[in-house]
Nucleic acid binder design. Sequence first.
DNA 1: CCTCCCAATGGAAACGTTTCCATATAGTAG
DNA 2: CTACTATATGGAAACGTTTCCATTGGGAGG
Lengths: 369, 369
Amino acid sequence: MGQAATIKDVAQRAGCGVATASRVLNDTGPASAEMRKRVMAAADALDFQFSDVGRSLQSSTTRTIGCIVPSIENPVYADAVQGAQAVFLNAGYQMLLICTNYSVESEIHAVRTLIAKQVDGILLTVGDAQNSEGLDLIRRRQVPHSLLFNAAPAGQRSWSVDDHAAAAAVADAFAENNHAHTGFLALNFLSSDRARHRYEGFAERCAERGMAPPALLEVDDDGLDLTARLQDFLAAHPELTGIFASNDFLALAAIRSARRLFIDVPGDLSIVGFDGIKVGQMVEPSLATIVTTPRVLGAGAGETVLSMIDGSAPPDVPQKDQTFSFRAGGSLAPLTAESKDDGKVAAFPSPDDPTRKTAKSNRRDQHEI
Amino acid sequence: MGQAATIKDVAQRAGCGVATASRVLNDTGPASAEMRKRVMAAADALDFQFSDVGRSLQSSTTRTIGCIVPSIENPVYADAVQGAQAVFLNAGYQMLLICTNYSVESEIHAVRTLIAKQVDGILLTVGDAQNSEGLDLIRRRQVPHSLLFNAAPAGQRSWSVDDHAAAAAVADAFAENNHAHTGFLALNFLSSDRARHRYEGFAERCAERGMAPPALLEVDDDGLDLTARLQDFLAAHPELTGIFASNDFLALAAIRSARRLFIDVPGDLSIVGFDGIKVGQMVEPSLATIVTTPRVLGAGAGETVLSMIDGSAPPDVPQKDQTFSFRAGGSLAPLTAESKDDGKVAAFPSPDDPTRKTAKSNRRDQHEI
DNA sequence: CCTCCCAATGGAAACGTTTCCATATAGTAG
DNA sequence: CTACTATATGGAAACGTTTCCATTGGGAGG
């Protein structure tokens, strides 16, 4: 047909004013039974549906919430976004999604776009919460919002993993397994305050534990290039026995690279990841990691925004130390002289024969304890 | 402050009519230099931004496109959605995202919501493209749209993997490796026509190749329950030497379950996945699978919708047989009595020592470089 | 029979834009 | 100096709602 029917069409067909039509369709205000019937019939015949843009203009509310994240290719963000979206949908809100691809410049642009669209609230992850043009604009405009995965700036609520404490827990795990020389493998170090917080928390706890300061390896992608970078890195730091990767994909990629370099994991090198993605438990060796609950965080942040919109009490943010937990896995093993078959930390008994040898598995032997 | 400034406020402050203000701010129509300066200054002072809802009402266009997918926890959909979103953003469109969690009932609800929001177009994946209430409504309303990952109903364009042909390619791969007795492992079989098409394509090619009809194992989740299910399944079908899983996660989960059951992959059982997710290449054995390009499909579908909106020529859909490719991997090995070193398809040389033995690993005892 | 009140209804304003049209002003060609 | 044109400007309508307010009519109570 031509254009979609408006309430005016319905009113006309029902032979009444738009006010009456509005009242019966919304079931607000009085109307005679006869009138109700006529209006309903007309709406039905015309396949009428309200236009939300008319409503939005009138009510100056859009029932739409914007969501800005770096990328949903990262399952952590994908889960969080989906958690938030479910909450929104449940409350009758829709969600506009914008991915910035880790570009800080697109953040401000995204915020502007969402504000122009008159969203009722914004959920966002920024590159640097301490210094974000987009966040400043949101505050200036007083748009209800919640940060997600960014540590909250002074006094503000935020739904995020305590990266600092979680990374410290990784240092603890290395320490408990007698590793003293570790490395930190980072991706997107520049464009993410999360990775930096992890590094800081890790380095601090290493210091407290009397371990060597972690060596830092920054990479640009987790592709094949990593193998060469890792090789150089380990050559430059032959004393390393453990690596903390700033996310699980990177950790898995590192394990693959190690395999290609004939370095046994965890025999020659222990590796710990971060995030707790599902596949971490499917591989062999299983991945020791920090488990987080992105979906819960996303849902919580979503509820926070909703509560700011309708003025109700916001949900409690989880205790900082409950935003993560350490999960043991086959990729982290104790470092001892004869660690061949001593208490390897395994989430479940592995039928795999652990006696696999690699061609030049001599790194370990030189650097015991 | 109170409410955001409107163009009326700007006009008032600049001492002109709204028409003039609109003209200079949009740089449409004539205006004196003096007036331009005044209006710009006023807009600046008031931190003015256009309200898109006013504009939308006036232009009956929202520059918003709706996107409905089952779940972005599945990286295939996540990639596709992100690809589409990038295209939209580039064209100045925003994207509303709704996840149905594989529930067919929520599809129609989602469509209604998007139509009420007056989206300019819709991108969607439905449970069953042949029989979808939501799709019917979209057609009835004549909303520009494109299907994604659903085989197109007669005569319609669609951006999807040719599941049927891809699954046939898997059957070919099994056949070329001398597997005659295979199983098909499915998740969400009921709520997804994709899984069904894969099964059909696989079964048909198996028949053409003279292989046994594939045994079907349907599971509800890819969690721990799978191990028990797999054990029963293999006990009931002891002749099976290969399993085609309807997606990569399921394949990886199956490999893990096999490991726990002391079944060597690929020594005792070959496994092939579908989708080509990144981690498939990080694990050992690497996953043989069908590689797809969800991001490309999502972007293409997005462009199609945009072209329908502005009436330009739609992009060409890829040839059916170019929507996927088979990737060899360590999880699929030839089935022969002496499969020492005949052409095992390996994506890259694996340094792993192949001497691991399992309880009944009685074939394929070699695995070079 | 007259009031009063309440239910039912419709007209109109408002929300923030854009754009059509009319008006006013200046400059130019005759 | 007159007419004409091009440029600059503002008023007002329209987009689709909701809601305030006024109007109508009928029934009940006096």
